[in-house]
């Protein structure tokens, strides 16, 4: 069974063919590293999966059911969550508030509905514990390390029990120690049976955490193979075009 199945996805913006005939499968609990040079179509593909815009042709199947996303919310309801490269966090709010932003827990107080801070703090703390991250739910995000911020952004995706988490450059621009922390977070997601797709330029990180590597070049998928059967040299060749396909 496949968690996510893309069949012949194409996308053109006017005369520009951004994606042509991409077919890809991701199993439950599988980590897929999506690699490729700038302009290879990685972001376009991820945006189609996340519902930012529809594909020109082709089909997306989640758990073998055909889906059609018109807006990001459709994808979210179908179990697809995305962690943006800049994490999209509010520095002035607490970790718990960020996790619940846009879907706050409320409780009744007479005729009023008020924010339920105790519940939000407790559930956020619970999520951080599951991720084994030393992140305090009540702390303001401004004072957090890069790894803790990632944990907040990832905890936000877990709130809705997602099936697929897309991560855009999760290890760019953070320190070596924090990279290890983030890769651990990704493994925790995998352990929960969530499929993870990581876009990354950083070869060692992808080889460190991905079960399978997909390489894109000029809008086409040129390889999709198990990490164990590939090598950084081969992937580099595939990205640049020195190796035609694998």
């Amino acid at each position: 069974m496949s968690r996510l199945k893309l069949e012949n996805i194409s996308k053109n913006f006017g005369a520009i063919q951004a994606l042509s005939g991409v077919s890809l499968e991701v199993a439950p609990g599988e980590v897929l590293g999506l690699m490729g040079d700038n302009g290879a179509g990685k972001s376009t593909l991820v945006k189609i999966i996340a519902g930012n815009f529809p594909a020109s042709s082709g089909e997306i199947r989640i758990d073998d059911r055909s889906t059609h996303f018109n807006k990001p919310l459709d994808a979210q309801t179908a179990g697809v969550e995305i962690v943006y490269q800049d994490l999209a966090l509010c520095n002035n709010l607490t970790a718990a508030s960020n996790v619940f932003l846009g879907r706050e827990a409320m409780r009744r107080f007479g005729p009023f509905r008020m924010l339920d801070y105790p519940t939000m703090n407790r559930r956020a703390a619970d999520l951080f514990k599951q991720l084994k991250s030393e992140t305090r739910a009540r702390d303001v995000v401004r004072r957090m390390s890069g790894g803790q911020r990632q944990a907040v952004a990832i905890a936000r995706t877990l709130l809705s029990e997602p099936k697929i988490v897309l991560m855009d450059e999760p290890t760019a621009a953070i320190s070596v120690r924090q990279v290890a922390e983030v890769l651990d977070l990704i493994r925790r997601l995998r352990d929960r049976g969530i499929s993870v797709i990581i876009i990354s330029h950083r070869m060692p990180d992808v080889f460190g955490v991905a079960d399978r590597i997909a390489v894109m070049r000029r809008g086409r998928l040129v390889a999709s193979k198990a990490t164990a059967t590939s090598s950084p040299e081969e992937v580099t060749g595939l990205i640049t075009g020195a190796i035609e396909a694998a």
Binding site: P72, Y84, D86, A88, L89, C90, N91, L101, G102
Partner: peptide, 12 residues
């Protein structure tokens, strides 16, 4: 006020 883009992305 903290991050308008993030607020938009979370569906506010």
């Amino acid at each position: 006020g903290g991050n308008e883009q993030a607020a938009i992305l979370t569906g506010i």
